[in-house]
């Protein structure tokens, strides 16, 4: 079974980078442009893993995570946060908001795939 990944980032560049890396690694990739867009496509895509940026218009990454966790059916959906900061503080905040793991931008594809492997059945 191919893993379905929903990548939410307001930067088209990052979305395409993610798509390139993840498609090469053999995943099915879906993208969304901001938090609201991401939540809207959640039911349709029904992803196995969500990757989300933090700083986005309309609804930020923390908002996305809380909304996902609030729904019982996705209470334990693996969510990776994309951050530009590697500060411990940010990781801690991501974890408290319910994120499963994090990827620091700029990411390299090996680490990204390793991170996904660590949180999802492949």
């Amino acid at each position: 079974m191919t893993l379905k990944i929903l990548a939410i980032d307001d930067s088209r560049t990052i979305r395409e980078m993610l798509r390139l890396c993840l498609v090469r690694a053999g995943f099915d990739v879906y993208t969304a442009e901001d938090g609201v867009d991401g939540l809207e496509s959640l039911d349709e895509v029904d992803p196995d893993v969500v990757i989300t940026d933090i700083n986005m218009p309309r609804l930020d990454g923390f908002g996305v995570i809380s909304a996902i966790r609030a729904a019982e059916s996705r209470a334990s959906l693996p969510i990776l946060v994309l951050t530009t900061e590697s500060a411990a503080e940010l990781k801690e905040r991501a974890r408290r908001s319910g994120a499963t793991g994090w990827i620091v931008k700029p990411f390299d594809d090996v680490k990204l795939v390793a991170a996904i492997r660590r949180i999802a059945a492949m």
């Binding site: 442009e33 901001d34 938090g35 609201v36 218009p57 309309r58 609804l59 930020d60 923390f62 908002g63 809380s66 966790r69 609030a70 408290r96 908001s97 319910g98």
Partner: peptide, 21 residues
């Protein structure tokens, strides 16, 4: 923990008005 966090994130969400792309 998550309850304590939720309101603040919701506020942020509201503070960001829609600028539909």
């Amino acid at each position: 923990t998550s309850e304590a966090d939720a309101p603040s994130t919701r506020r942020e969400a509201k503070a960001a008005p829609g600028r539909a792309p």
